[in-house]
Design a protein around this nucleic acid. Structure first.
Lengths: 224, 224
DNA sequence: ACCTGAACACCGTTCAAGT
DNA sequence: ACCTGAACACCGTTCAAGT
């Protein structure tokens, strides 16, 4: 009975997806992302590797969840100040989060589907720009200019949006999405209707971003 | 003898590091980076996995080499035109290369030491800016602004430069480096001598880059 | 309902043995 | 000098068996 109690104490908190994901983030922070294996993660939780599969579908599922946790740490300020201040604060917060989890960019880049928190985050950034007077098109450009500074996966996110709008019986799901993410839906629609193939012109966006940066550098060339 | 000839034909080109690296890039292009294992790569070359170790030290060594090959594909234009045109062409070429090898950014990000080609590439970019009238400090800022557009590893590169300058008997090696990479050496020196801890202030650089971009967006806000 | 032991198909890598 | 078979320590994952 004494040993039973001890055993129960050691793993008193029952396993859950939340707990698994939090442990995964901690392990990656502590030992690097290459140390994040099912076996080591289980060990960290005082359990066998196979037990994890009762709470997550696969390791990919864990990585998806870990990205969700990390992106969820980004603080988005309330929409009281002007767009520039809000956007600046948001991106500074994003940077702080990525400095805290240096392995995160690589994991984020490896995901194929954006997580709920990612959707929410983009909705916020887009909302800041729209409320600040940017047109839908200009907001879209702005996202590309911010590029990896907004996390580095703008491209994939909108590739996905295109698929959503193109789907056959996806109308209902889309309407539901529009409720939760009005700004993002607005932009996804505009981008899809623009090009011939329904996508955004990545080459043109890259050049737009590059030229904005080059012009900015030109203005500062003789400063400092 | 017939069979011997056939066998020799199948693997007539002797293995070499060059051939291993080229095969690795091809395999990653064809099947994705997650398919790049020692065993599959060996199979692609008609050889056993263990044979690869005669030409590379480890898988990490292969990934280092693969990054070197990819960065080496970036075309740097001759220094005839103005800095803006040269830089634009260079970055457009970099983009083309990364579009051709979509797995490359993640591998680049995972390297801890910059490869020779990376050094050469940065030397070229820095050279374009210096020749274009940018001060050493402003050139340094510009690299940070271009950020992931110049590949996304500015930070690591200069962290390393700091170690180089700080080393004890590293003076000789440094002099040799200065010969080959005069522009980069110039900047590395300036950056090291600046801060209290001999490094560049990443936070300040991030804010500089962010503000340049935000100002650029502000100017374009009502355009389009 | 949740956890586990054994097993499978894969990894990277070493080393002694082959030619 | 270059290649290989067998072996080792690791992976992610499945499944039947335990509680």
């Amino acid at each position: 009975m004494a040993t039973q109690a001890a055993a129960r104490t050691r793993s008193r908190t029952p396993l859950s997806k939340q707990r698994v994901l939090r442990a995964a983030v901690e392990l990656a922070d502590k030992s690097g992302i290459e140390s994040l294996s099912m076996r080591k993660l289980a060990q960290e939780l005082g359990v066998e590797a196979m037990s994890l599969y009762n709470h997550v579908r696969s390791k990919e599922d864990i990585l998806d969840g870990v990205v969700d946790v990390v992106i969820g740490e980004i603080a988005v300020p309330p929409k009281t100040s002007d767009w520039k201040t809000s956007l600046r604060q948001t991106l500074m917060s994003a940077r702080m989060v990525l400095v805290r989890h240096p392995w995160a960019p690589r994991v984020i880049e490896s995901r194929t589907n954006p997580s709920p928190a990612t959707f929410q985050y983009f909705e916020s950034v887009i909302g800041i720009l729209r409320a600040g007077g940017f047109s839908v098109d200009m907001t879209h450009h702005a996202l590309h200019v911010l590029g990896s500074r907004v996390l580095g996966f703008t491209q994939e996110l909108f590739k996905d949006s295109d698929e959503l709008t193109a789907g056959p019986a996806a109308a209902a799901m889309f309407a539901q999405l529009a409720d939760k993410f009005p700004y993002m839906t607005e932009m996804a629609m505009a981008v899809s209707h623009e090009g011939a193939l329904g996508g955004c012109d990545d080459d043109a966006e890259f050049e737009f971003a590059l030229d904005l940066i080059l012009d900015g550098l030109e203005n500062q060339r003789v400063a400092d």
